[in-house]
Design a protein around this nucleic acid. Sequence first.
DNA 1: CTGATTATTTGATCTGAATCAAATAATCGT
DNA 2: ACGATTATTTGATTCAGATCAAATAATCAG
Lengths: 245, 245
Amino acid sequence: MLAPRSLPHGCVDRPEVNDCDSCGARALSVCGSVADRDLERLGGLAEVVKLAAGAVLTREGEPAPHVFNITSGSLRVYKLLPDGRRQITGFLFAGDFLGLAIGEFYVFSAEAIEPTTVCRFRKGPFRALVESSQPLEHMLLHRTSHELAAAQNQMLLLGRKTAIERLASFLLDLPGHDPARPTAPGHVRLPMKRGEIADYLGLTIETVSRVLTRMKAKGIISMPSQSDLIVERPDLLRAHAGGEI
Amino acid sequence: MLAPRSLPHGCVDRPEVNDCDSCGARALSVCGSVADRDLERLGGLAEVVKLAAGAVLTREGEPAPHVFNITSGSLRVYKLLPDGRRQITGFLFAGDFLGLAIGEFYVFSAEAIEPTTVCRFRKGPFRALVESSQPLEHMLLHRTSHELAAAQNQMLLLGRKTAIERLASFLLDLPGHDPARPTAPGHVRLPMKRGEIADYLGLTIETVSRVLTRMKAKGIISMPSQSDLIVERPDLLRAHAGGEI
DNA sequence: CTGATTATTTGATCTGAATCAAATAATCGT
DNA sequence: ACGATTATTTGATTCAGATCAAATAATCAG
């Protein structure tokens, strides 16, 4: 399952409360639950890092001095086996956190899918701040719990669903439409490549492509372009995702 | 990956601080990080529930009034598809928490594997207590983060590892030996049945059995009985688990 | 715009694990 | 201890998805 989106449904972002205009720390406010004072302190700790598409943010096994908050763009988070097999464990978007569970070394790699900006915090001061602010800690627990629930859905998908069920689940989890521009109903953007979808769903590129072709043939979806998709039959998609077909 | 064990390595449990002798709430102390006062209040909220082997604790989709802490025994936590396909997302043992991420309804089912005791808390008062105690909240965040990291390892396993790699990873994650009795080096108990291992690893019973037979043939393990296993070649097991063979 | 590069689709074949089917082996109630 | 039930192992066969192999289609640098 995709990482939970940054802001709860219906939540309006707060105006900036510190001098770190481009920093997503203010996204942490989560509908006002984190005090302005905490935001200021967070902003003071933040370093803005700009990443080109494909740039590496963390590499599994390397020392882990930082925690990150995504300001804009998107990341793929993944693990590798020595022979190159890759499992993408999630896609992260603006507002999402990365690195909360790390110890001394990163246990995953993360790369920008598109041009991306992140706020970077040194682990020590970040932890100190979290310990001094229960609302912040509460928000992190809330998010982490939801990520765990999403991870359990993904285990069901990877362990027990067929290829078409995986694709159906994936398409339903994608954000319905880009908030920037109002789109047609059922319109979905696929910002990632087939290989990334495959490595997220435990399939191959070829299988992803074939299943999308099958879905088109069945009239469940249509694809105006390779990276734009229209869900024509959400009912059928949902039935497939739930394993009812 | 298995759920993280309850107490960090080397952590000694505290003496009881409330009248709830059989309740695992005191396990929450986590080496003294949670104040006695919080423990007393938790103890006051707890109801002890005894479960026979196979008893159902929660059912996916049903209203979720409770959060649980396992006192003794073990649980399997799983999700089902409508046609009965099952994915076990984790095995829980004494000290582990269940239900932190739930909303109004349970999103998983949980059953006792063996005779098991849990402490049950009503969600509302439990949350209120957590909000009033940052050390408690901190401990929950710490545990949940580690569960998330374990879930990501499991995604790699389910999405990309072969059958033998899955079994090797599983055997290495099992607690090395029962703390109750000192066991021979490399000795591992398999408290769960083949069907549970299969549903945890995204395999079938037959494949689990065949892979264990293959491992025996290769001299990697031996099995004095169906539920007792000796790791003869931990080096080879580790190599398989890491996908290096 | 154009050729080169990279991504996607489609086709043929293979294979690891699933399914179907018995044959042991273990466990349990009496 | 004993028959019945349940769990595990082993064997034969099938199949969904992987792999191997081109044929399009899209993108991008110049």
